[in-house]
Nucleic acid binder design. Structure first.
Lengths: 205, 205
DNA sequence: GGCACAAACGGACTTTACCCCGTTTAGTAT
DNA sequence: ATACTAAACGGGGTAAAGTCCGTTTGTGCC
């Protein structure tokens, strides 16, 4: 087994400047293309060409086609997460956990429906992308809130997973509908009410 | 607007014999390949060649790669559905609906874990294939059972969707795990217990 | 500034799902 | 039997994701 070569004392822990620049540029270009044309015309070749970069670079930055949409969604999601972690109640801290849980579901539904185009595109990936699995942040938050609610002897990890799936399931169904954007508000409201009902049923003593 | 040509009086409503034969042959060949090699070596070209048929035929029969795995799964699922619809209680009719619901979750978990390889492969499809969405049979059965349980004023359609997702979510997570087949029984048991707990919480008065 | 090297880049190449369309065949009516 | 039609077949063609590897570039050290 080789030592990792010389390993210059101050190994660069940070991303190179050009890499950062290119990632940003690619994301911006991707957003443009998404806004201008549909998501299907956003091919890796097209993106690379429009950004004036090589295809290899696109793959190096994002790994996969779905990775681009995930990155875009992550980007948008940062603001949302901040509301959850330190915004005003009932979404943010300060409200009783059950109310926060209910508010979280409503907010998440609203967020995904608002960003439906990107969210839908992020589903494409050919790797196994099940419901609540690929949303560790969401699941963790739900898990934490559940921990603050008195539930009898329950497998909290499994319950968190189930609730995450129960929240995402209807949303994914909506996102994968063909028409899309039709009657979004009503659907969001219905999902939010359903979520509230489910959570209250599960958590009542 | 043209009339549909002559339309010979007895238009053939049934699938042609060669089509049926080829579908069966392709499914059998696919099973062979699946058993022999992994699922990734089962490409459309390879399947066509091994079956001695044209590639176009494979696509005509199944439409898409995932379609093959769905067909295989459907095939296996027929027996399962029969148990549900007319087998002995508590899975089949005769038991109280809540018990049937619990038994259904347990049985479905066992079924999917048993057929994990095919089930996993069936996830591939590039079209939006979320959790509980693509399982209308499962969802409908849950929906029907829910209808037989006294729940207050609840949106039963949404609740059925949520529960379907809550059942499928953990299973899909397991199916998409990289190791797979490791500790399958324990996982199945944990999911089954979690399902029972969830359903009892939701349905208690 | 000059050096060394890991990281990043680019674009040709490979693989595979899926499409297209000319040809063949099963099934029916006469 | 024969003719006819819709369905099915075959397999070459296309597009797009993802890989490879030789070349270039940013960065820390002297």
């Amino acid at each position: 087994m080789d030592q990792p070569a010389v390993l210059p004392v101050g190994a660069p822990r940070t991303e190179r400047a050009d890499a950062v620049r290119n990632r940003r540029h690619l994301l911006a270009t991707a957003r443009e293309m998404l806004a201008g044309q549909g998501a299907d015309t956003l091919t890796m070749d097209a993106l690379a060409e429009r950004a004036g970069l090589g295809k290899g670079t696109v793959f190096r930055r994002f790994g996969t086609r779905a990775g681009i949409f995930e990155a875009l969604l992550d980007d948008d999601e940062r603001a949302f997460q901040e509301q959850v972690l330190s915004g005003p109640p009932p979404l943010g801290p300060g409200a009783p956990p059950l109310e926060r849980l209910i508010a979280y579901g409503r907010a998440r539904a609203a967020f995904l429906i608002e960003h439906r185009e990107i969210a839908r595109a992020a589903l494409d990936g050919s790797q196994p992308v099940p419901a609540g699995a690929q949303t560790p942040v969401s699941q963790m938050h739900i898990r934490v809130l559940l921990g603050q609610i008195p539930l009898g002897a329950a497998d909290l990890d499994v319950l968190a997973m189930q609730l995450t799936a129960a929240l995402d399931g209807p949303l994914l169904l909506y996102l994968s509908a063909s028409d899309l954007s039709e009657a979004a508000p009503q659907i969001g409201e219905r999902i939010a009410r359903g979520w509230q009902d489910l959570v209250e049923r599960v958590c009542r003593p």
